[in-house]
Design a protein around this nucleic acid. Sequence first.
DNA 1: GTGGTCTAGACCACG
DNA 2: GTGGTCTAGACCACC
Lengths: 136, 136, 136, 136
Amino acid sequence: MAIEIQITTGGTVPIYRQIMDQVRRGIAGRTLETGDQLPSVRALAERLLVNHNTVAKAYNELVRDGVIESRHGKGVFIAANRQVYTKAEQKRRLEQALDSFISEALLLQLSHDEIREAFDRRLRELNGGSPQAKDK
Amino acid sequence: MAIEIQITTGGTVPIYRQIMDQVRRGIAGRTLETGDQLPSVRALAERLLVNHNTVAKAYNELVRDGVIESRHGKGVFIAANRQVYTKAEQKRRLEQALDSFISEALLLQLSHDEIREAFDRRLRELNGGSPQAKDK
Amino acid sequence: MAIEIQITTGGTVPIYRQIMDQVRRGIAGRTLETGDQLPSVRALAERLLVNHNTVAKAYNELVRDGVIESRHGKGVFIAANRQVYTKAEQKRRLEQALDSFISEALLLQLSHDEIREAFDRRLRELNGGSPQAKDK
Amino acid sequence: MAIEIQITTGGTVPIYRQIMDQVRRGIAGRTLETGDQLPSVRALAERLLVNHNTVAKAYNELVRDGVIESRHGKGVFIAANRQVYTKAEQKRRLEQALDSFISEALLLQLSHDEIREAFDRRLRELNGGSPQAKDK
DNA sequence: GTGGTCTAGACCACG
DNA sequence: GTGGTCTAGACCACC
């Protein structure tokens, strides 16, 4: 099954990161399964109107993380799922990112409820129609 | 009362941002009150083993956000609470922070459920005993 | 259209502030329009014979003021007009700027009449042909 | 005749500068005349509750500018008026300070009329009861 | 190529 | 002693 990657420019999230995020979400939401083929670097770059280096970078990082596999002359495919970060490392990085966000929200004088609401709304938007992973 | 700022390197969150985050959380959690003095630029730099310019940058941005005041030759102090940014600007900044956080979380291969759980846990920790911003 | 930024050293106004001032005046005077690209950090630094960090600092503050936008890997551009600061904050900043200016003028041994005259002359120069901000 | 120097803290204008400004304004407004004695460094520092180095710095700068004279063992006195900055230097520094103020005001989306109004109001406040110099 | 972060170290302004 | 500005030069992120 294919995936419809979309990007937005002008925001703070880098393009290569948006591509990575969407591939990962596709996997988490079962839109993409092990063995599925991704669009080629050139094809995707053309469709998204971005530099092909940007797509290549996203794919490279995903390969490095073991999320996808590049089969020479064939294309790029979803790999068998593999954990890349240690639990401790994951926790540390997540909490740092979390603190950064929460401290920004607190600066804006938002109550905890309001912060949670903004968070939920955004998460729901990202979720789109794809179901959430349950058994991970 | 003093504050124990700590940083970690190697992650994606820049040092000056970590300093800002912790000062803001200190204020939100009532560890820091209006009028309290922060450690001097050079003293903090020495303790954290970073360059003084890095601390100065963090303090500088906090001044621009109206969070602290710098009194030349005296030191840096927590400012009285005031609203600096318009509603629209607040919204813009919150969304940016939110996107950055969610992107980082997805990069760590966390499912939406796991992200939400970490978020809730952190918010609950902060909530311990201290009233919500709204109540003020 | 481009902009010809110039700086002078030896005075009390820091270089990064002079750069900020000229960009803002360029916008006010319609020399710079939304979407226009500014010279790159390093190019401008080279031309002005200053360190690139000094230019970066000026640009950075303009970004925080919502005057320009920095697109990573692309360059720096004039942002769409938007209100970033609350009325109270605007008043605070205007009074600070005003006090700084008047203090500098008094230091130069100018009488109030002379200060006023210089002020009027400068304002008239800016007015040349371009509509007032109010008319927009 | 004596002069009642007053300072405010917490603002952006340094204390030593406020002292200098008020002495200059006293001269411009004929409150202080050539030969008048100023309070001693220690006495003024005590009354203003500031560090005596701060008063000393203000006096030193005024001496350097030829505005006052220090007579060993006697005290500090108003000097015969003398021009210290060349006209060109004066003009250059004034215009730089002026640009800085005006660009800040323009950022705040104020019309030229509003800027002028704020300027006039502040100048009137500073003028207080003392008449303006006319024949300078 | 672009901007962003950080270091090392200097000098100035202020109290 | 405090903070503010600037330089020289490094390394990284992004396109």
